[in-house]
Simulated scan of single mutants.
Amino acid sequence: MRIYMQTQPVAAEPPRYYEVILQQDLLGGWTLYREWGQQGGRSSSKREVYLERDDALNAFAQARDAQVKRGFRVVFSQGLEAPHVR
């Protein structure tokens, strides 16, 4: 699953983005990748590993919801179980 979000651009600054990706690994665990930054600028990333699918899905939803509350809007969503965005 993947969600790509952006903020509205402010003045002459490019928009900020936040991307959340959830992938199953070869051993049956789940990896949550997060990347954020400014379009065309520096970025940061974080990776978390979960053993249980439900734990990974909850972390995915929490990461998404936290950014939506901060003003990010979903631009792109992909995956068989694409989460519902409120």
Rank of each mutant, 00 (worst) to 15 (best):
G37T: 07
V20Q: 03
I3M: 08
P15Q: 05
L22D: 04
Y33A: 04
R42L: 09
M5R: 04
Y18N: 06
T31P: 00
Q6S: 12
E48P: 01
L32Q: 03
V49F: 10
S43A: 06
S43T: 07
Y4V: 09
D25V: 01
Y33G: 05
A12N: 13
R47Y: 08
E52V: 13
A12Q: 12
L27P: 00
A11Q: 12
E48Q: 14
Y17E: 03
Y50P: 06
Y4M: 04
T7M: 07
V10S: 11
S43D: 04
I3P: 05
A12M: 11
D25C: 02
L27R: 12
E35R: 15
G40K: 04
M1L: 15
W36I: 06
L26A: 13
V10N: 10
E48V: 11
D25Q: 02
I3F: 08
Y18V: 05
I21W: 00
Y17F: 15
M5I: 07
T31M: 10
V20D: 01
P14S: 14
S45R: 11
Q38W: 01
K46W: 09
R16Y: 05
I21Y: 00
Q24P: 15
L26Q: 11
E52F: 09
E35K: 15
I3C: 10
L32T: 05
L32V: 05
L51K: 14
R47A: 06
T7L: 06
W36T: 10
Q6D: 09
D25Y: 01
Y4H: 14
I3D: 01
I21E: 05
L26I: 09
W36K: 05
S45H: 14
Q23G: 10
R2G: 03
S44N: 13
G40P: 00
L27S: 14
L51M: 10
I3L: 15
Y50V: 04
E48W: 00
E52H: 12
G29I: 00
I21N: 08
Q8P: 00
G29D: 10
L32N: 03
Y4W: 06
Y33S: 12
L26D: 09
